[in-house]
C-alpha cells in the first residue's frame, strides 16, 4: 500500500492550518491598527491653554466686558464647528473665583458649547465617550485702582467619539 494518497491529504490539511493562522494574524493586526488614536485629551488641554492665553496677559486678566463676552469665540480664536452637524462636540466653561478659597464668584461664568456634555461628565466621569481637561490658574484682576487675586478655572470637554474611539 503506497502512501502517496496520505501525503496529498496532509497537504490539504497543511493549507487549512496556514489559512487559519494567516486569518488570525490579519484579524489581530486589523483589530489593533484599526483602532483610531485618541487625541481628545490633548485637544482638551490645548483648548484650555488657548483660553488661558486669551484671558491672561503677563499674569493679569484682560477686561471681561460685554463686547468681549459676546464675541468670546472670535476673540479667543475658537471654533467649535465640526463635520457632525447638529451635535455639539465641545463644551467650555470658565469660572472666576476668589483666591485662595475659590468659594465666591468674582465675575460671571463664561459657558459655551454643548451643555449635555457637562451633565454626562457629572454622571460618568470616566466614560470613554468623551475626554475632559479641568485646570485652574492664578491671575490678577483690576478692581478699581487696586488689583484682586482670582483663580480662573477652565473646564473643556471633547466628545468626538466616532473619530477617536471604537
Amino acid at each position: 500500500m503506497n502512501k502517496i494518497g496520505a501525503d496529498k491529504v496532509i497537504s490539504v490539511y497543511w493549507f487549512i492550518i496556514l489559512f487559519l493562522v494567516a486569518g488570525a494574524v490579519v484579524y489581530i493586526v486589523s483589530e489593533f491598527y484599526g483602532k483610531p488614536y485618541d487625541v481628545r485629551e490633548v485637544e482638551a488641554n490645548i483648548m484650555v491653554n488657548q483660553v488661558a492665553d486669551c484671558l491672561s496677559e503677563n499674569g493679569k486678566l484682560i477686561e471681561l466686558n460685554e463686547e468681549f463676552r459676546n464675541d468670546f469665540m472670535k476673540n479667543c480664536r475658537l471654533n467649535f464647528k465640526t463635520e457632525f452637524e447638529g451635535e455639539g462636540e465641545y463644551y467650555l466653561e470658565i469660572n472666576f473665583t476668589d483666591f485662595p478659597d475659590g468659594k465666591n464668584k468674582v465675575f460671571s461664568d463664561i459657558i459655551t458649547g454643548n451643555l449635555n456634555l457637562k451633565e454626562g461628565l457629572l454622571i460618568t466621569k470616566d466614560s470613554g465617550s468623551f475626554r475632559y481637561s479641568l485646570k485652574s490658574f492664578y491671575s490678577l484682576a483690576k478692581d478699581g485702582d487696586s488689583e484682586k487675586e482670582i483663580v480662573v478655572k477652565i473646564l473643556s470637554i471633547v466628545r468626538k467619539t466616532e473619530k477617536n474611539a471604537k
Binding site: 491672561s56 499674569g59 490658574f137 492664578y138
Partner: peptide, 15 residues
C-alpha cells in the same frame, strides 16, 4: 506648562 507659568508670573506681578 503654560498655566503654571501664568500663575507664577501673576503671583510675582502682585505687589
Amino acid at each position: 506648562d503654560l498655566l503654571a507659568a501664568k500663575s507664577i508670573s501673576g503671583f510675582l506681578e502682585n505687589k
